[in-house]
Design a protein around this nucleic acid. Structure first.
Lengths: 220, 220
DNA sequence: CGAAGTATTGACCATTATCAAGCGTCGTGG
DNA sequence: CCACGACGCTTGATAATGGTCAATACTTCG
């Protein structure tokens, strides 16, 4: 899939200012996934990183007794597969119809300048994800159920950017992301609606009504 | 490892196999800290990474109302400062007498081959820390108090490697790392001692007595 | 329209936090 | 060397938060 670039190092000649997406487009392979499909083959894990072009993806770890923890949701523009571990490979699955571009880390040094640029950008992306995950640890360890759910809605609304926001994941995934039971998530959503902080249209579409009061609740 | 030779032919001559520590030693600056001293100046944050030579360090985030989350403890051989965030700089403090080597990320591209090697090793270290942090999120979100405390002792004993292990941090730090109250940590320690899984000699020195039974409790 | 899968609500219970004493341990000074 | 004091740790009683189990209500799709 990548061998053409190795055979034609000429493409490394023009040192254009390039962002993540265009570098991925130069060096990677596009794939499409249906909902519930496995994005990441086990044997590729630890070497392949993915840029999400469209759709949404979840990354989860399972304990032998069934307890599950979702380590993150990834949307268009996010990079996936930055964590590497010899044990505990996460299960990475598409939530909705999704397209990704994949590149192998180990191939990057052979791509000349664009490969180097991408390596640096990916290191930076990894460092930034680490910081985000630290925030999430604070949420899991020290925040109440309402704060967690409110924070989650805030986050996702921020990223989506529109007025009404679509939730691509079921309640169980939200619960497993926030370290709560599905019932508690549901109750907190009802509570937030009762306080007119958010409004739902069905159980997958919502809107933030009072972002100032919501922010006050989040006590960062 | 191939393309670097192309990009820097002048320095490509001695292809020595170099590890993290020796690269840090080539490129970094050693500093010593007393207990409770701030390791990381705020204005350097996000650019400087540290290798811990000896001692122990904690990295903590604070919420405005006083809630604290310790994102990690770092011992000799660990790399510190891999997470970058424009908001939420963590407070990084020495737990005991500590020596570190610091290097600036932004300086690495100017160091030729050793700089490149170090960049790649640091990216790898960042990816591995991300995986460890995912494990910790699972612990915070889904494990019971006993499991957390037992897992913590197991972890630290693993790293220390000896028979008797010294805890460089007070109970409050353990609590803030595990997302528990100090009282619960204390109770769980008493419980584990009652089951003869661990033994304490004072409150800072312990030993794992029944690692098999302890592992069974950890239900990974 | 009906059935299956999701989501919500309610009643009750378990776990952990909080508040308040009491106990050790270590360092200091008599 | 021992007594005292300060700090950190442990223990106990009680309360709050969130989990579990069970029933009901949506929604989505055939």
């Amino acid at each position: 899939m990548v061998s053409t670039a190795i055979l034609h190092p000429a493409i490394s000649a023009p040192p254009i200012e390039t962002g993540l997406t265009s570098l991925f487009e130069q060096l990677g392979v596009v794939t499409a996934f249906r909902p519930e499909e496995e994005v990441c083959a086990q044997d590729e894990a630890n070497d392949v990183v993915y840029l999400v072009l469209s759709g949404a993806v979840r990354s989860a770890r399972l304990l032998s007794d069934g307890r599950r923890q979702i380590s993150g949701f990834y949307y268009a523009g996010d990079v996936l597969g930055l964590a590497t571990s010899l044990f505990h490979q996460p299960a990475v699955e598409a939530l909705v119809d999704t397209r990704t571009i994949a590149v192998r880390r180990s191939a990057l040094p052979h791509f000349g300048l664009p490969g180097e640029r991408l390596e640096r950008l990916l290191w930076r992306a990894t460092s930034e994800e680490l910081a985000r995950v630290h925030d999430h640890m604070m949420l899991l360890a020290r925040k109440s159920a309402v704060e967690r759910v409110a924070g989650f809605l805030e986050d996702i609304a921020q990223r989506a950017g529109g007025d009404w926001v679509f939730l691509p994941m079921p309640r169980q995934d939200i619960a497993d992301y926030l370290g709560l039971s599905i019932e508690t998530v549901s109750r907190m959503l009802t509570q937030l609606q009762g306080q007119r902080l958010v409004a739902f249209d069905g159980c997958r579409r919502f809107r933030i009504c009072a972002s100032a009061r919501l922010a006050r609740l989040l006590a960062a």
